[in-house]
Amino acid sequence: MGIKVGITGPVGSIKSEALAKVMEMLQNDGKVIEGTLMSEKSEHGKLYSYFITDILTKKKIEFARYDLVSRVKVDKLGVDTKALEELLIPSLEKALEEADIIVIDELGKIENATKNIKNEIEKVMKSEKEIIITLHKKSRNPVLQEFRAYESVRVFDITPINKNILPFKIVKVLNGEEESI
């Protein structure tokens, strides 16, 4: 079973910086990394929209926006589930075929948008692939609770104090140089 790493921290933490550093270090080691990254846009201090980017193709779409009418919401933003499925599912399918390591940024926001997305993420989680996810520290989301229960999972809590050393520790775990449990 591949090692599964979670990077957790409070909202507004430096999770994405740590993830970017880990990805850079692994790619420099020749690892193929695929999956998805999430970003947000704020205007005048208010959350405006969320974007998802395919790591391999660099394709980026806006999938949630404050003025989008949808029964599916992420942080009070309406979700374009069709657009999200059209990027996320092929990205994860390709990652399952080709990647050494699969990245899912901000698990806890997207997995319940549709049944197809939930099924694809569960397939990734149950795979033999090594996985890196970022997740909110206090989430009680069932998918995240299930992730934490998987064998060979190591969850790292990022803080301003350990933010510079943590990426090195995560890479050591993924390279099997440090005990993973």
Rank of each mutant, 00 (worst) to 15 (best):
V124Y: 07
G108R: 01
K163T: 09
I132V: 13
K60D: 07
N164I: 03
K163I: 15
F51S: 01
L84A: 11
I133T: 13
T57S: 11
H136M: 08
V69H: 06
I52Q: 05
K123Q: 02
D80F: 10
I121E: 08
G35F: 00
I33M: 06
E151G: 04
K60M: 04
N164Y: 10
E111D: 14
A83G: 15
E111H: 12
L107D: 09
L144K: 08
I14W: 14
P142S: 05
K137P: 04
A83W: 04
K138W: 08
L144T: 12
L144R: 00
E146R: 11
V72Y: 12
L96K: 05
E151A: 07
A20N: 15
H136F: 03
M23L: 12
I132Y: 02
L77H: 04
I61V: 14
E97I: 07
R140G: 14
L19K: 04
G35C: 09
L26F: 04
L68N: 08
D67C: 07
D80G: 08
R65M: 10
L68Y: 09
K21S: 15
E130S: 10
S152R: 09
T53I: 02
N112P: 05
K21D: 14
E151R: 09
L87A: 07
F147Y: 06
S127K: 07
N164S: 13
S13W: 10
Q145I: 15
K172A: 03
L26Q: 03
